[in-house]
Design a protein around this nucleic acid. Structure first.
Length: 445
RNA sequence: GUGGUUGUAGCUCAGUUGGUUAGAGCGCCUGAUUGUGGUUCAGGAGGUCGUGGGUUCGAGACCCAUCUUCCACCCCA
């Protein structure tokens, strides 16, 4: 059996784990600063909880878990069984639907608005690609149970806070689903809103001509497309774009409401300079109903590093009506790529061991181990080399472990002459037990 | 799900139109050298050439299937 990790999954070694933890801790801190509380939900849910929430495409990508026992017995058509006959659980596909389930299930004991953050892996049976895996960590913050636009304001402030702490310069594209609905209304295609937005969302990638040809392909008429054309325009200036939209959509009540919402938010966020109104921004998930955002890192070509928006009635499918929420997500894998590209990862975040204890023969084994115990008691990370092998090999080992010091017990060594070598400087000292403890104590501080 | 791409020693890769015992660098092991690891030298181990079929006198090279990698779609994060 050849060792091989499963498609679209990764192992993380010491360095990668350290770096990821560094980022996760900063995100956690940002979430806590904005008073979100942690929530963790199980890796799998009942299959009905997840199926049908992400569209047909989503259903296909959900990892389903086979029923236990001899479930095939009760399958009617064995050559073509129904999913629910053979699978009753599924791995979570995102963190939003489990949140909706949790909030609905616990609505009695939660106080609203309920603010939670959640950092957990999710699974998608997608075909892997650059920065896209079948198992990846999502970092979400959501607030549910308030219609207030202040929530949007806070979410954007949270984005700037978090990315600032990571040292990443960003711009946030912002739009409002109501504006998109308004555009559809003005152009007389309100019944094809989702189709239209999915295509419009690609404009950055495929350009105006691409969008036009794809819309044509989908059966939009030339007249409709001509009417839609103002949506392809992009503006550098927020006020300019708002003025334009106000004029264009003044006949659409919904569109006007969308613009008002945007204005409210834009006026109040801390760094409105990073906001960019982008009418073509739609975001795939069609449960969004209000403001939507997408975060792009500047100075690096990595795509979006986060996104989110307002959704109404996400809990309705679980029987809890009239609950509105805003959620944002941080794409950890993309953020890691971005930090690597920009060289923003500090190198002192990797937790190597501090000291390796080596010895020449068994005569110093007990003394050596005692030192290990004493050093550990004062919080030093100690590796006690277990075997008596050539000193060269033990030194090589220590260096590979990233240890900053080696403590050497030579056969003639008595307790008062313990040799300590600093691998960073190459300096070597002799000291007794007490001095040694003090030396490392000071190093810790 | 569609179309392409990749897979040779622990790592990075060579391997010429199918033809003898499949190579290099780094790493690893052993021994010397360097006054206790980091230098230098010498020697050595390690590959069913992703896996399974097939074509052929002969396959790492060709064909099919499968797994994996990366990429573009679809979709999305």
């Amino acid at each position: 059996m050849r060792p091989q990790s499963s498609k679209g999954t990764r192992d993380f070694d010491l360095i990668q784990v350290s770096r990821r933890n560094y980022v996760i801790e900063l995100l956690r801190k940002a979430f806590q600063t904005f008073s979100f509380n942690p929530l963790e939900t199980p890796s799998f849910e009942n299959i009905e909880t997840l199926m049908g929430k992400y569209g047909d495409e989503g259903d296909r990508l959900i990892f389903k878990i086979l029923r236990s026992g001899d479930f095939m017995k009760s399958v009617s058509d064995k050559s073509n069984p129904k999913i629910k006959e053979i699978a009753d659980k599924a791995l979570r596909y995102d963190l939003t639907v489990p949140l909706a389930r949790y909030v609905s299930q616990n609505s009695g004991k939660l106080s609203f608005p309920y603010k939670r953050y959640q950092i957990q892996p999710v699974w998608r049976a997608d075909r892997p690609q650059k920065g896209r895996y079948r198992e990846f960590l999502q970092c979400d913050a959501d607030v549910v149970g308030s219609d207030s636009l202040w929530q949007e304001v806070e979410m954007i402030d949270l984005y700037s806070f978090a990315f600032q702490s990571l040292g990443i310069s960003i711009e946030i594209n912002i739009n409002n689903r109501k504006i998109l609905a308004g555009i559809a209304e003005i152009c007389g295609i309100e019944n094809r809103l989702i189709e239209f937005t999915v295509v419009l969302d690609k404009i950055e990638k495929i350009g105006e001509e691409g969008v036009i040809s794809e819309l044509t392909e989908k059966g939009f008429s030339l007249k409709e497309i001509t009417k839609l054309k103002p949506a392809f325009r992009s503006f550098e200036n927020l006020n300019e774009s708002i003025a334009f939209l106000k004029d264009w959509l003044n006949k659409s009540e919904q569109g006007c409401r969308g613009i008002e919402e945007l204005e409210f938010v834009i006026k109040r966020v801390k760094d409105s300079g990073i906001l960019k109104l982008n009418v073509s921004l739609a975001r795939g998930l069609n449960y969004y109903t209000g403001c939507i955002f997408e975060v792009n890192a500047l100075n690096v070509d990595i795509g979006s590093v986060g996104g989110g928006g307002r959704y109404d009635n996400l809990t309705a499918m679980f029987g809890l009506e009239n609950i509105s929420g805003v959620g944002i997500s941080f794409g950890l894998d993309r953020i890691m790529l971005c930090l690597e590209d920009l060289n923003l990862l500090p190198d002192d975040i990797i937790q190597f061991c501090d000291v390796v204890i080596v010895r020449v023969d068994e005569s110093s084994s007990d003394n050596g181990y005692k030192i290990a115990q004493e050093l550990r008691a004062i919080g030093v990370s100690v590796d006690y080399y277990p075997d008596i092998v050539k000193i060269k090999k033990q030194f090589d080992y220590a260096e590979k472990r990233g240890a900053s010091h080696v403590i050497i017990f030579e056969s003639e060594n008595d307790q008062d002459q313990i040799r300590v070598k600093n691998l960073m400087t190459g300096e070597s000292y002799h000291m007794n037990r007490k001095e040694l403890l003090i030396y490392f104590q000071e190093l810790k501080n």
